[in-house]
Write a protein that binds this DNA or RNA. Structure first.
Length: 421
RNA sequence: GGAGAAUUCGCCUAGUGGCCUAUGGCGCCAGCUUGGAAAGUUGGUUGGGUGCAAGCCCUCGGGGGUUCGAAUCCCCCAUUCUCCGCCA
């Protein structure tokens, strides 16, 4: 949710942001109007309530013979107060409904435009050249007997798979490496719930734009999370953090579930786009003035992980029209996928400023001990999808795959996965 | 799943319709005291809204209700604990 004070003082800043996103600008004017109405209704209620409170005291201390008349008067006041209260509540609900629809104010440095208008920040590493026809990860997975898509589909349907043998171990190794790096950087590891209550899903903003991406269990009124960000953002819900002199950082590991409803026909081969995968997510709570610096740190940790996996990659600054509603700015790190001849997203890091924390009511105490809304940021550190890039970039002519050095300690020192025959 | 009990300002706690503008203790902050500290002592210490301000309003797990008036009475819900049942 946006800051109501910003709406009052600089509505034009919010209008400009909505324009940049290609979102509904008229919401801003509606919100300004409803805010005025709400405050007027609230003032009226408070005036009546104050009178009623005074009157109550009068009744209590009045002599017996006057009580009946005073009580009758009080009855009338009670009716008026109730009506004013209802009016104020209704006005507040109207306003809140609109406020929830307004998206986070875009950072001024975010490139304008839609999905195609990202700005390339950098390209790192050398794109591999092969003296043979490189195989895609699905073919390698089958050849090496480490990804079993056929049987995944047999038991769960399309977009499901088994990771098997070295494939399963490779994923766990990658998660271990990422978790170790995160721990060294001061992140606290969390294994999070993957089923959450509606209000948490709502609070993190996923029920809006991603509603049809989410699995829902009606019998229990619970949602399956598509990222541990949901649980990590909800972790300090309704809390006042004692200090954020240093950012509070969590590394959340969980299985993620996505319906991929709008992705029919896209990435049908292999495990590039699946209904279930694992992810290690970084999540930071910090002071709003620290958020941009923290965002840069998250990006840098992501790059470090890509480098440990010896993957060529590029970093892009995502354009305003392609930002999630909570994000003020977002960088994607994309790895080179040889068989597609292009870069594909492996990680994403968003600066949600105070937008998400305001919804979830997560605050911190400033130097003066006063509660203030915190800023939240998130960023991927490893996911199942990384296997695609690792397998394809490190494949050899004979179909074997060389394990990046940093991963070997978690795989019993093995240097290469070789075809079974 | 069934029965019972509980939920009060960071923690513990008092409070069974108006004197609750919520008690007391612990902790924390500030002053006094001291060479400095401890002890002692005085004061402060939920959060939010609204207003230029003084102030006013809301907040006793959440939501509804009864009442002129609710922490207190009634209903629904959530959570925790105890016992019973069932079960990886």
């Amino acid at each position: 949710m946006i800051d109501i004070n910003l709406l009052r003082e600089q509505p034009e800043a919010i209008r400009a942001s909505q324009v940049a996103r290609g979102a509904d600008v008229s919401l801003v004017d509606k919100a300004v109007k409803l805010d005025l109405e709400k405050r007027a209704a609230l003032a009226e209620f408070e005036r009546l309530r104050a009178a009623q409170n005074q009157h109550g005291k009068l009744v209590a201390s009045a002599p017996k013979e006057e009580k009946a008349a005073l009580v009758a008067q009080g009855q009338e006041m009670a009716v008026a107060v109730k009506a004013a209260d209802a009016a104020a509540n209704a006005a507040d609900e109207e306003l809140t409904k609109i406020l929830y629809k307004i998206e986070n104010v875009v950072n001024e440095n975010v490139p304008a435009g839609g999905e195609e208008n990202f700005v390339l920040v950098k390209e790192v590493g050398t794109i591999p050249t092969f003296s043979f026809e490189p195989k895609d990860h699905a073919e390698l997975g089958e050849l090496l007997d480490i990804i079993d898509i056929e049987r995944g589909v047999k038991i769960s349907g399309s977009r499901f798979y088994f990771l098997k043998g070295w494939g399963a171990r490779l994923e766990l190794a990658m998660m271990q490496l990422a978790l170790e790096q995160a721990s060294e950087a001061g992140f606290t590891a969390l294994i999070t719930p993957t089923l959450v209550k509606p209000e948490v899903m709502q609070g993190t903003g996923f029920l809006g734009e991603h509603a049809d991406e989410i699995y829902y269990l009606p019998a229990d009124d619970l949602y399956l999370t598509g990222t541990s960000e949901v649980a990590l953002a909800g972790y300090h819900r309704d809390e006042i953090l004692e200090s954020l002199e240093e950012p509070m950082r969590y590394a959340g590991w969980s299985t993620c579930y996505r319906r991929e409803a709008g992705a029919a026909g896209k990435d049908n081969r292999g495990i590039l786009r699946v209904h279930q995968f694992n992810k290690l997510e970084m999540f930071s709570y910090c002071k709003p003035e620290e958020a941009e610096a923290e965002h840069a740190r998250l990006l840098q940790w992501q790059e470090q992980m890509l480098q440990k996996c010896e993957l060529p990659y590029r970093v892009i600054d995502v354009a305003a029209g392609d930002l999630g509603s909570s994000a003020a700015r977002k960088y994607d790190v994309e790895a080179w996928v040889p068989t597609q001849g292009t870069y594909r997203e492996l990680t994403s890091t968003s600066n949600c400023t105070t937008f998400q924390a305001r919804r979830l009511n997560t605050r911190y105490r400033d130097e003066n001990g006063k509660p203030k809304t915190a800023a939240t940021l998130n960023g991927t550190l490893a996911t199942t999808r990384w296997l695609v890039a690792i397998l394809e970039n490190h494949q050899q002519e004979d179909g074997s795959v060389v394990i990046p050095k940093a991963l070997r300690p978690y795989l019993g020192g093995v240097e290469k996965i070789v075809p079974k025959h």
